[in-house]
Simulated scan of single mutants.
Amino acid sequence: MELKYEIIPDHEIEVCRELCNELMKYQKSKADISPEFFDSMNFETRLIPSVHKAMHNYIVVVKDKNEPVGYVYANISPKEVYRNDFATFFDMNSVQREAVGCLSQFYMKNEYRKYGVGSKLFNMSMDWLSSFDEVDDYFIYVSNGNDDALSFYQRKGFTVSHEILDGFISVLRSKKVRSN
C-alpha cells in the first residue's frame, strides 16, 4: 500500500463520484429501515448539492498508487440547510450559532479498513472543523444498520442525540470544547 492523502478543492469533487456512489450502495446494503430511500441518493443528489450549500468545504481523498480508495467530506454550513423537505435534522433552537460543522460523508473501500485510514481522515476533518471559531456544534448522520460507523464515531467522542425519519438516521453530536 502506498497511501496518499490529498485535500482537494471543491471544483475537483468529480474524483469522489465513484466512491460516493459506492457509499450510497453500502449504506443501502446495511439499512433495515427504508433502504429504498437510497435509491435516489448518489453523487449528483448528495455530494454536489451539499458542497454548493456549504459556506466552507473540506474534502480529502485517499489514494493508493493514484487510485482513489476513500474520502471524507466535512463542511461548515448555515444551520438552516439542515431543515428541508427530506427532514429537520436537529432542533434549530438547540444550536446557538448560525453555522454548524458536519462530517457529512466518509467512506473507504473495505480492504483499506483496519489500517488507521479512518482515524486519520476523522482526525483531519475534526482538526479542520475545530479551526472555525464561529461553530460550536458538530454533527454526524449515520444511516441505520451501519453499526460499525456508529461505534467508530462514539469511540471518537460523539454521542447519539436522537433519531430522525423513524430511525432511518441516527444523529450524533459533539460540542466544541473551548479553552479559556
Rank of each mutant, 00 (worst) to 15 (best):
D32A: 13
D32H: 13
D32E: 13
D32V: 15
I33Q: 06
I33E: 08
I33K: 11
S34L: 15
S34N: 15
P35E: 10
E36V: 15
F37H: 15
F37S: 13
F37R: 12
F37C: 12
F38V: 08
F38C: 08
F38I: 09
F38D: 03
F38L: 08
F38H: 13
D39V: 08
D39T: 09
S40H: 14
S40F: 14
S40E: 14
M41K: 14
M41Y: 11
N42G: 10
N42Y: 08
E44W: 04
E44A: 10
T45Y: 09
T45K: 11
T45F: 10
T45D: 07
R46V: 15
R46H: 13
L47S: 03
I48T: 07
I48S: 03
P49A: 09
P49G: 08
S50V: 04
S50T: 09
S50H: 06
S50W: 01
V51S: 03
V51I: 14
H52M: 10
H52L: 11
H52E: 09
A54Y: 03
A54I: 07
A54P: 02
A54S: 13
A54E: 04
A54N: 04
M55F: 12
N57W: 04
N57R: 06
N57S: 14
N57L: 05
N57G: 05
Y58F: 15
Y58K: 11
Y58N: 10
Y58V: 04
I59D: 00
V60G: 00
V61P: 00
V61W: 02
V61Q: 01
V61K: 00
V61H: 01
V62K: 02
V62S: 02
K63Q: 10
K63V: 06
K63R: 12
D64C: 09
D64W: 03
D64H: 07
K65G: 07
K65F: 12
N66E: 14
N66G: 04
N66W: 07
E67D: 08
E67L: 08
E67I: 12
E67C: 06
E67G: 00
P68N: 03
P68C: 03
V69T: 02
V69F: 03
V69A: 03
G70E: 04
G70H: 04
G70S: 06
G70T: 06
Y71P: 00
Y71S: 00
Y71F: 14
V72K: 00
Y73E: 00
A74C: 11
A74K: 01
I76Y: 06
I76N: 05
I76G: 04
I76Q: 05
S77P: 03
S77L: 08
S77V: 08
S77H: 05
S77T: 12
P78Q: 14
P78T: 14
K79H: 07
E80V: 13
E80F: 10
V81M: 08
R83T: 15
R83L: 13
R83Y: 14
R83H: 14
